[in-house]
Simulated assay, not measured.
Amino acid sequence: MHARVVAAITTAVLGMAALLSPMPVARAGESGKPTVIAHRGASAYAPENTLASIDKAAKLGFSWVENDVQRTKDGELVVIHDDSLERTTNVKKVFPGRAPWKVKDFTAAEIARLDAGSWFSPAYAGTRVPTLRQYMCRVEHNHEKLLLEIKNPELYPGIEQQTLKLLGNAGWLDRQHLGRLIVQSFSADSVRTVHDLKPALTTAYLGSPTVAQLSRYTPFTDLINPSYGSLSPAYVSAVHSFEGPHGKPLGVFAWTVNDAATARKVTDYGVDGLITNKPDVVRAALEAD
């Protein structure tokens, strides 16, 4: 009888631990090759950070996509990289007198009027800047996984809480989805806030702290995601020697790798992921080895 009780308690404890721990993120060691993440979607082939771009990534056979999240004047979360609408929309034509056309100075309804595709190609004329709600619906529809960047958090106080609330309402903070979601930022404070609010969530810091600084990040981040140009085999090995908040070695996703030679070189460093505008080119390079 005692043995049964002990077994039941053990099972319950293990079950609770599983619920509190994030689903494992793909590591190079599991497949032998780094995870390939489509940067802003398949952004070499469709307008970045649009539904068309993540649809293109899905058609190319990639499950991981990356995006950028910012906030409108009236509090809507939208998917766009720059803090200005100028580069990737026709905002200057639609609202000529409102320079410098910052995302935070426009309402969601105003941004919804903008063409976010013609700058890339006439074939994408009429493409819109998606809200994060729209984007998450499409990611779910495409059965994709998401590396979500909180962009410019210093411009949007409370964006971490708001993003997590939206993700939760969309069903993306349950155990099934936690293995399909990573939240990252260039702001260590923002990453720390996300971890504190949702400890089970996988987080990533964008940058390349020195080896001496890495221990400062281990309480709240699972990955260190630097520019590939800042990497070396020794640095990747050093990052892997530290454990993150979930008791696993820190991972490394390198950005932005767009050619075969660089993909092979950085893969040899031992990275766990490659973030790329051309996921098909990177995949072909890895498969050729």
Rank of each mutant, 00 (worst) to 15 (best):
S187G: 11
I182G: 00
R133L: 12
L181D: 02
S185M: 01
L206C: 05
K198I: 02
A234L: 10
Y156Q: 02
L132W: 02
D222T: 00
D189Y: 08
S232I: 12
T202N: 03
H143C: 09
Q134M: 12
S215M: 09
P226E: 01
D174F: 06
Q162H: 11
K198E: 09
R180N: 11
P199E: 07
P153L: 04
L146C: 07
T163Q: 02
I150H: 00
L148K: 00
R192W: 09
M136E: 11
P153C: 10
T218W: 13
Y156P: 00
L167Y: 06
T210K: 14
L132V: 11
I182V: 15
Q213L: 07
I150C: 01
P209Y: 03
Q176A: 15
Q161A: 15
P157Y: 14
R180F: 08
G179C: 10
L147I: 00
E160G: 04
V194I: 14
P199F: 08
S185H: 01
T203G: 06
R138E: 14
L178E: 12
S215I: 07
H143Y: 07
L148D: 00
S230A: 15
R175W: 15
L214W: 05
H143I: 08
T210R: 14
L201E: 04
L167F: 12
T193D: 09
L201F: 11
D196Y: 05
I159L: 00
H141P: 04
A234N: 10
T131P: 05
I150G: 00
L181W: 02
A212I: 10
L223D: 02
